[in-house]
Amino acid sequence: MTTLHIDDASPLVLYTLRLADNALVLGHRLSEWTGHAPMLEEDIALANVALDLIGQSRALYTYAGEAEGEGRDEDAFAYLRDAEGFRNVLLVEQPNGDFAVTIMRQFLYSAFMLPFWRKLMGSADERLAAIAAKAEKEAAYHLRHSAEWVIRLGDGTEESHERITDALADLWMFTGELFEMDDADRALVERGIAVDVSALRPEWERTVDEIFAEAGLTRPADVWMQTGGRGGRHSEHLGFLLADLQFLQRAYPGASW
């Protein structure tokens, strides 16, 4: 099997793949922590979040394959696309860094995804609405878990405050992409299928401000936002992630596992 391209994907397939890619790439990142977390409870918690996200990605890939109608399954999408075929936002592919980076990345993402899934639950597309209904419950836990840690680290020791501040500075420039929409998205919004993400910004900012206030953190001034992931132009990191993730499928093409 060769590398799979998705350039001519329909708006619905592309929309579904973008959601799936976000979930898989972040789930993969979190799974890298397993066995190496700061405490046993966090080994278990991070694996939990990773499992939720990988589960979301599987439901979404399966649906994308059905909507596409080319007979592709979840693994074809996950294992046979090169980096340019992945359409996740840049935020989720950023390396784990220290625990502060992992937590801040999760918080910024989950604070967006919780209201996102809530809106998508009302989608005119029943499959997406059903996936959203399950994911919403999971995202609520992901947000609570990460927000509690942002507060603990922000209001913990001098070192933890410094680290979480630094993590925020590393990641803030990737938050703008969460609110981007292109023509494919707008077409689906008009049909009542997709979520108008620009409308989610006030709630996201409220959540961020509220948690940062408790953590003693300041929302950074607006900076030049990085973009590209949703269009297939990624950071340096995704290629390494995929080399790891896809190794067996690439080394033994066509085998089933």
Partner: peptide, 29 residues
């Protein structure tokens, strides 16, 4: 958790990946 954790990121299918991750999580539990 370590020797098995080695293969979580390289599991050859999403089903296997989820199963292995859940298994290693069980061990932590």
């Amino acid at each position: 958790m370590l020797p098995e954790g080695n293969w979580i990121t390289r599991a050859p299918s999403l089903r296997r990946k989820a199963a292995l991750l859940a298994k290693v999580q069980d061990e932590g539990g």
